[in-house]
Design a protein around this nucleic acid. Sequence first.
DNA 1: TTTGTTACCGAACTATTTGTTCGATAACAT
DNA 2: ATGTTATCGAACAAATAGTTCGGTAACAAA
Lengths: 184, 184
Amino acid sequence: MDRRQRKSREAILGAFTNLLGEKNFNQITVEEIISRADVGRATFYAHFETKDFLLKELCRELFCHIFDSVSGEHGHHHIFSCDAPDSIFIHLFQHLKHNDNQITQLLCSQNNQLFMSYFKQELLSLFENQFSVFYPTEPKIEKSFLVNHLASTFVETVSWWSKNGMLLSVEEINKYFIFAVKGE
Amino acid sequence: MDRRQRKSREAILGAFTNLLGEKNFNQITVEEIISRADVGRATFYAHFETKDFLLKELCRELFCHIFDSVSGEHGHHHIFSCDAPDSIFIHLFQHLKHNDNQITQLLCSQNNQLFMSYFKQELLSLFENQFSVFYPTEPKIEKSFLVNHLASTFVETVSWWSKNGMLLSVEEINKYFIFAVKGE
DNA sequence: TTTGTTACCGAACTATTTGTTCGATAACAT
DNA sequence: ATGTTATCGAACAAATAGTTCGGTAACAAA
């Protein structure tokens, strides 16, 4: 990719990220973004169709590498089929605590739920075929409910964690999560 | 309240409710609202300062009577201190299934999370001092985490329920919820 | 170094949407 | 019957979104 293109793109995404940490998504104007990114109006629209697409792109960049690395570390076999079935969660917590791309600020900003919904979307497909580890043979409850519960609880745990300044260690927050979904 | 005022207000809230069932909140314009409500532009702004305040008012009307009735039925004593500690949840599920004010359509529309966040807000204060029934003496986990988990799980349960067309009975969905938070 | 390509800027522009103002009218309360 | 008040309609101003285009400079490849 052209260096100019890359610089413009990163300037826009960076300015947008900062603004998201300060104010509501709806209240952020294109004018603010381009003036903070110091790029022309036409340049913005050359890169991103609308503000919503910009958000989508940002989320993709934020979460993609996390999920990529998680999938990569576990190869193409079932992620829960190794020694520690819940190691996937510790991995995710670790990645989040590492705070690439200022992800922490975004997760505890007032735009919290914006990112959480994207996050949950990714988790749903990740947990789709592994929920049986936590809920083995539960015929009375529909699968989609359990998968949704698993993903929701993880997202809410991360949300609570980041809102509390991520004071708890990765091991501690993982215990919290396990307790929430298994009750032990 | 003046009959004219009441009619205008309800026309606006009704039109807004219908639109929320069809498209995204951000994409709804004041023009659409007033043309569907068949009121003048000035009238709209005489009733609601902005679109956001309109949403807030709608949520208040949607949820307020539910929570009022729940609190009223249980008087001023602890809602969990009666025979069936979890009866409060069945009450809530029943009210939701009754579907006053087209609440079901809104809960499973694309604006789902908009209402769910308001809903959760109310639940948090409702559950604040009653979480110990579900999690008696759990010293290793912070209280705010448990309260948040309780409210989140309830909201997610309702969300899943309404998205599936509320096919399950009140008793069944209550069982799902209890299983999710207690694991039994 | 030269040449052709491409991204950027900046400025002007259109269209949409928001929010306000005001006089006339009709519904309301007393 | 009288004074009040909500509404209408229409015209506003202001903010924002999104487009267009010619000139300029950075780029990549020869």
